[in-house]
């Protein structure tokens, strides 16, 4: 197989397969959650559920000062690489083209040197969180093989994207093919691992906010 064959495979059938598994898997996961429902609550509510639920969806991006102080590394580096990942994913022009061709929506991208810098920071952040996971007593205690697996499948697309952009893998079709291939692994693995948190975290935050909101507390 030539590098161009590989690129065409990843851009064609493999990509279709990956997003099929991704869409199928993640929607199963989401509907599985929603279908479980919640028991009727007979207690008289002190507050609203919907608005605090929606607020909490946003508020957990922005931790309370105490948590920030006690877990500065997690908050700073965690936020940094998550934001970096999202910027690289959604603001890099070739990615926007891909989204446009798939979903039909598009938006202006960021200049490449900006995305490049953000990607570099994201890579460093990911390496730092891996080291943190390996050394921090609580994280090491909690970590399962799956945690390291999802770290790897998250790290690889960013790394291969960075290498492809800087042409550190040759020939280019191989570099681009590898990047797309690692993204496909990410998409396929996503619904079956805790990478689902990309979607379910917002569901979880909503429920959290709603449960507390009903009792009159903005969580």
């Amino acid at each position: 197989m030539t590098p161009m064959d590989f690129l065409l495979l990843t851009k064609g059938p493999l990509f279709s397969l990956a997003i099929a598994i991704f869409a199928l898997g993640i929607l199963i996961r989401l509907f599985e959650i929603f279908a479980l429902g919640r028991a009727h609550n007979y207690a008289a509510a002190r507050g609203n559920e919907v608005i605090p639920g929606l607020k909490t969806m946003y508020r957990r991006f922005n931790p309370d000062p105490g948590t920030f102080k006690r877990s500065t590394f997690d908050v700073v580096v965690g936020t940094l690489w998550h934001v970096g990942f999202v910027i690289a994913l959604l603001m890099f022009i070739p990615h926007i083209e891909l989204i446009k061709s798939t979903l039909g929506v598009s938006w202006p991208g960021l200049p490449n040197p900006v995305v490049d810098a953000v990607t570099a920071i994201t890579l460093l952040g990911l390496v730092a969180v891996l080291i943190h996971r390996l050394t921090h007593p609580v994280k090491r205690f909690l970590s399962t093989p799956q945690d390291y697996l999802i770290w790897a499948v998250t790290f690889l697309p960013v790394l291969t994207g960075y290498l492809a952009y800087h042409r550190l893998i040759n020939p280019y079709p191989l570099a681009l093919g590898l990047h797309i291939f690692t993204v496909e692994i990410f998409l396929i693995v996503l619904p079956f691992t805790k990478l689902t948190h990309i979607f379910t975290a917002f569901v979880a935050r909503y429920y959290n906010g709603a449960i507390f909101g009903r009792k009159g507390i903005q969580s």
């Binding site: 429902g37 877990s71 997690d74 399962t144 999802i150 805790k194 379910t200 569901v203």
Partner: peptide, 22 residues
């Protein structure tokens, strides 16, 4: 006892360990 919130919560935990600090 397992309901939609529980399923959403378990689906979302990434073992970050921040709850320990709380």
């Amino acid at each position: 006892e397992i309901d939609a919130p529980v399923a959403a919560f378990f689906s979302s935990c990434v073992h970050c360990g921040l709850c320990a600090q709380a």
